[in-house]
Design a protein around this nucleic acid. Structure first.
Lengths: 195, 195
DNA sequence: ATTTTGCGAACGAACAGTCATTCGTATTTT
DNA sequence: AAAATACGAATGACTGTTCGTTCGCAAAAT
């Protein structure tokens, strides 16, 4: 059964996430993973069902975080501007809390097999449509500029995609510093306002 | 000799870029590619040297576009704000002119083998450092807000990464429309200025 | 004019290697 | 004793690539 400090299953998922991030899912072999975990390839079929089960867990666990986060945002009474701020914070939180799974979630979902691929895409579509509604609402209340909502959506979502590479920049920047700077950047742009 | 309308080599590169975009480099087999081109797997070794040669060409051709574009921007006499605008336009141009190779350039370069991987990363580092200098200069002249330059760099670069998925959104938006909206969005943010 | 030579393009077959996974069995843990 | 965990060996499928060969066409030689 699950050994105490961290179950072997958890270790497998974590090491796998790192490998998937670094090499991608198809280029990561079970032998690579075995070596990392300190097991022979045949051995972790006592713990997991298949290679894809790992990918599925990572993808859908991350997806759930976004789904839950979106629900919370939608349930609050807040201006659209505030909701957008909360969503940006949500993306930053997910990306920084668990950077490896966030990467896999972002880039490796396409290697899911059916029907999981369709299920995942449905979750994603749902999330994006909620996101879109907030942007559209913000435009109609004149909180936001009149810019194509889907263009705004994709720009914002993707602008946060570098966060989970975590190693390169911003070692010295605090998390809240990053949050605040990013929100200012996305809401008001790089250009300095002339007041 | 090179048959006229499009040489077979060109066809191979183009079909390969599409497959690499859709399935990723490691998940794309030479047999997949063969079927697309209408050749048997063994046959295109008359045209190309190896699978990786295709990846190399795509990556370094795209890299060259950015390098050349950056040189042009650096050579102009312009304010840092104007230079940043030009760089954003450059990214949009590359991403929309040849969306498939742009995707490969963005996501599949890590599968390059040495020494090509190091060469590629050197080009990239060089590009980014020029980009950073412009942002830093803009901050010191007070054209830009005082936000961590590398944070601005990665946000901008990545915010344009969805463009090459081309299919999903913005079918009806013209290219110049997209350009203008994006520049406004990145320079001045989503929020509507209260004037 | 006819034959010979050369060559790029395409092929089927086969290569050695790797892939994820399964099975039977041993070892360890409970 | 029972259950969970680990292993070596083997599986069939797939990987990129090479080999020897063939076909059609163009240039060269007769």
């Amino acid at each position: 059964m699950s050994s105490n400090p961290k179950s072997k299953k958890q270790i497998i998922f974590q090491e796998a996430a790192e490998l998937f991030r670094d090499k991608g899912y198809p280029a990561t072999s079970m032998r690579d993973l075995a070596e990392r975990v300190g097991l022979k390839p045949s051995s972790f079929y006592s713990h997991i069902k298949s290679k894809e089960e790992i990918l599925q867990k990572i993808c859908f666990d991350s997806a759930e975080k976004f789904t839950i986060g979106m629900k919370e945002v939608c349930d609050t009474e807040a201006t659209n501007k505030e909701k957008l701020q909360l969503l940006i914070r949500l993306h930053i939180k997910v990306a920084t809390e668990d950077p490896t799974t966030a990467t896999v979630f972002n880039d490796e979902w396409r290697h899911l097999s059916e029907p999981h691929l369709s299920n995942f895409l449905a979750l994603r579509r749902d999330y994006e449509s909620h996101f879109l509604k907030i942007i559209e609402a913000g435009i109609s209340t004149q909180e936001f500029k009149q810019i194509s909502p889907s263009l705004v959506l994709y720009t914002i979502i993707n602008s946060l995609r570098w966060l989970h590479f975590a190693n390169k920049p911003t070692k010295e920047l605090s998390a809240t510093q990053i949050e605040n700077d990013l929100i200012q950047l996305l809401l008001q742009g790089v250009e300095k306002n002339v007041l």
